[in-house]
């Protein structure tokens, strides 16, 4: 599965570009590159549902990003500015944290089943029961709409929330003048 690693490396590079580049549009495009790579990787790990969703969401995300950037500015003028003291401190703290976190994660990764050998204790039940009991051929759909339908309700609610939120946030004035 070398291609996964290649994509991952590509993603890392794109991610670094996205963070470091001065032009925000370019950064968003790099972000899109990461996102589409993720979509491709979803396909590679046998997750077509995810891939579809990831692609469409990515498109929409980028559209929104671009829309915002077009309305404001696409130059990140802070990129070249010097770090202030607190920022340096934060960065140092981040570095220490990152190292520790990374080590901890590497150690934790040793404990979970290695890549490609998922345990599937509960999932096995789903696969067994999905079609007969829930009825959907798409097991993912069975999971999200029957076994774990509440998650989906929640997901829809999150979306609803963010819609209402965005609409609320885009009001021109928040308070009536007395």
């Amino acid at each position: 599965m070398i291609e996964l690693y290649l994509f991952l490396i590509f993603m890392l590079v794109a991610a670094i570009i996205a963070t470091e580049i001065k032009d925000l549009l370019a950064a968003v495009i790099s972000l899109g590159a990461v996102g589409f790579s993720v979509a491709i990787m979803f396909i590679l790990v046998q997750a077509p549902d995810l891939a579809i969703v990831q692609i469409v969401v990515e498109v929409l995300t980028i559209v929104i990003f671009v829309a915002v950037i077009l309305k404001t500015t696409h130059i990140d003028e802070t990129i070249a500015e010097k770090f202030s003291g607190t920022q340096v401190l934060a960065t140092v703290l981040y570095a220490v944290f990152a190292i520790l976190f990374f080590i901890a994660m590497v150690r934790a990764m040793n404990d979970i089943p290695p890549f490609g050998q998922a345990t599937m204790r509960v999932a096995g039940q789903y696969i067994r029961l999905g079609l007969p009991r829930a009825g959907g051929a798409n097991l993912v759909a069975d999971v999200i709409l029957d076994f774990r339908a509440l998650d989906t309700l929640g997901e829809a609610t999150v979306l609803f929330t963010s819609v209402i939120g965005v609409v609320a946030l885009m009001r021109k004035i928040g308070r009536r003048q007395k």
């Binding site: 549902d49 579809i52 969703v53 469409v56 993912v140 069975d142």
Partner: peptide, 14 residues
């Protein structure tokens, strides 16, 4: 959605 990849969400986005 219940038969093939995709579903309400993906379709809705489309």
């Amino acid at each position: 959605g219940h038969l093939t990849p995709g579903g309400g969400f993906a379709g809705g986005v489309i």
